[in-house]
């Protein structure tokens, strides 16, 4: 592992803001979900299934919110280091490709550590309350989904920072950096709202379905998860293949646009950062 990669991971994992919003804030909602909003402990097989589904939905949605929160900090860090990045890739042994790859890998690893912390805490707290160990049906599938979410969010954050730099609207960063979290909350709204086909179109909205599928092995709906969990009303199941394609397409679009903008970016001068 190169020094840059090690320091990138250290940077992400020791940043108090990232820890506060990516873990502290979300852990509060984990506790609320498990100990306040969840139904009582189950005894019958059906109740065990409902609790397992509830826990899976919890780590799917809250994990995504945690990653979205971290993406805000990521946009900021990409923005602040834009000058350094240009200088480094021009006058040091680090090529542009190597810089991007290492920055991406370091960020991804850190994002995944944040998401896994939420995942493990949901599993741990739910075991403490229900005495049910709700491990995913397909752990590899869950990991792949989390990686895809991390990749999508990293490139979304990168794209936002580059749009701000290239369009010379540096003061817009405060507002635009929240776009990943806004998408995160739109996805979160699927707990109550059935987005229908919009779930395939709005970024991040098809990810909870993939996570839920790999968590409990059943096809979730396109939204209104809590209604679905209660079993009061039948809801149309999501097309998982389309959901996965939607995520892949999103990642490709974010990467392509970022690389196009990267060529035009010269970084942000210090004076503008202080504004």
């Amino acid at each position: 592992m190169t020094l840059y990669l090690r320091l990138k991971i250290k940077d992400m994992l020791t940043n108090p803001e990232q820890i506060g919003w990516g873990i502290g804030f979300i852990e509060f909602w984990v506790l609320m979900w498990i100990f306040i909003f969840s139904p009582a402990a189950g005894e019958t097989l059906w109740k065990v299934y409902v609790i397992k589904t509830n826990i899976t939905i919890a780590y799917s949605f809250l994990g995504l919110l945690s990653m979205s929160s971290v993406a805000i900090g990521l946009s900021y860090s990409l923005f602040y280091t834009s000058r350094a990045a240009r200088y480094i890739t021009k006058f040091t042994k680090v090529s542009t490709l190597r810089f991007i790859v290492e920055d991406f890998l370091g960020s991804l690893l850190a994002i995944l550590i944040f998401a896994l912390t939420i995942f493990l805490s949901v599993i741990g707290f739910s075991y403490a309350k229900f005495r049910i160990l709700a491990l995913p049906e397909n752990p590899l599938g869950v990991i792949v989904d989390l990686v895809m979410a991390g990749v999508a969010l990293y490139w979304l954050a990168y794209l936002i920072a580059l749009v701000v730099i290239v369009s010379e609207r540096t003061r817009a960063l405060t507002m635009t950096s929240y776009i990943p979290l806004i998408f995160g909350f739109i996805a979160y709204s699927q707990l109550w709202v059935d987005l229908g086909n919009l779930a395939y179109i709005i970024p991040l909205c098809s990810l909870p379905a993939l996570l839920t599928y790999h968590g409990i092995g059943v096809y979730p709906p396109t939204g209104a998860y809590l209604l679905w969990l209660a079993g009061d009303k039948p809801l149309p199941a999501i097309n998982l293949r389309l959901a996965a394609i939607s995520v892949f397409m999103r990642i490709i679009i974010f990467i392509t646009l970022s690389l196009i903008l990267l060529r035009k970016s010269r970084g942000v001068p210090m004076e503008e950062i202080r504004l």
Partner: peptide
């Protein structure tokens, strides 16, 4: 000019701030 160490160096602090880490880590990095 891309990826060419030994050509040019500059003392602008904006190019030496990469992470939210201490100055020694930045020094090691550069």
């Amino acid at each position: 000019i891309h990826n060419k160490p030994g050509v040019l160096a500059i003392n602008l602090s904006e190019v030496h701030h990469v992470f939210h880490l201490n100055a020694y880590d930045h020094l090691r990095l550069f």
